[in-house]
């Protein structure tokens, strides 16, 4: 075994170059697939918060039913039903959870008076505890909640936090309330 400095440095450089190349090439090859997967996760979340069944091909349903719509400063999405009537808006939901960032979407009715749904695209809460914010029973509780200006949503009757995951439950709620507080005044913008 050769232990000279020259050999050590050359060995490390060659090895790093080989592995970096392999990883870079693999990542480059997979990049389109991975970003398409990520876009699909977002499309599915947007369809779900608007209560549209994504079906086997979320991207084609998405193309058919949803259009991007700027509401105030928000990059929102607007969905229509078969008759061309608006079903609702999907707004991005971003912020801090207990352990990391939470990204998702909320659906709001065309009249900005009801919550249509809540979905997460990314969350890093403890699996089995805070991670349960991504379970259907928890998210479904938010469907159909009435929105009133100046009135925060709170846990209590009809809306349960997760046992053993109080902080994550609260984090979701404060994200939601912050977004709604900003969104409700935009009702006028949409109406016009």
């Amino acid at each position: 075994m050769n232990d000279s400095y020259g050999y050590t440095i050359v060995f490390m450089l060659v090895l790093s170059a080989v592995f970096t190349t392999v990883l870079a090439v693999t990542q480059g090859a997979y990049l389109p697939v991975i970003s398409e997967n990520e876009r699909n996760v977002e499309r599915k979340a947007i369809l779900k918060v608007l209560n549209i069944e994504p079906g086997p091909s979320a991207s084609s349903v998405f193309e058919e039913r949803v259009v991007p719509a700027a509401v105030g400063d928000w990059d929102a999405y607007l969905a229509y039903d078969d008759g061309g009537h608006p079903l609702g808006y999907a707004f991005p939901l971003n912020g801090q959870g207990l352990w990391g960032s939470i990204r998702g979407f909320i659906g709001i009715s065309p009249g900005f008076d009801r919550l249509l749904g809540l979905e997460f695209v990314e969350q890093n809460e403890t699996p089995g505890l805070g991670g349960r914010i991504d379970e259907a029973w928890f998210k479904n509780q938010f469907q159909g909640l009435e929105l009133r200006a100046g009135e925060d949503i709170a846990y209590g009757s009809g809306l349960d936090a997760i046992t053993g995951a109080t902080s994550s439950s609260q984090a979701v709620l404060s994200l939601l309330n912050a977004a709604i507080a900003e969104l409700l005044p935009l009702k006028e913008v949409v109406g016009s």
Binding site: M1, N2, D3, Y7, T8, F11, M12, L15, S16, F19, V22, L23, T26, Q27, Y30, V33, I34, N37
Partner: peptide, 29 residues
């Protein structure tokens, strides 16, 4: 037989990290 003895742990870590990143990419895709 080629890994210099003094830096073998760094080399091991590099190899391990490369395989794990590869695994991560494959399941992501």
């Amino acid at each position: 037989n080629y890994i210099p003895h003094r830096i073998r742990m760094i080399v091991q870590t590099l190899i391990i990290a490369a395989w794990v990143i590869l695994f991560d990419l494959i399941i992501k895709a």
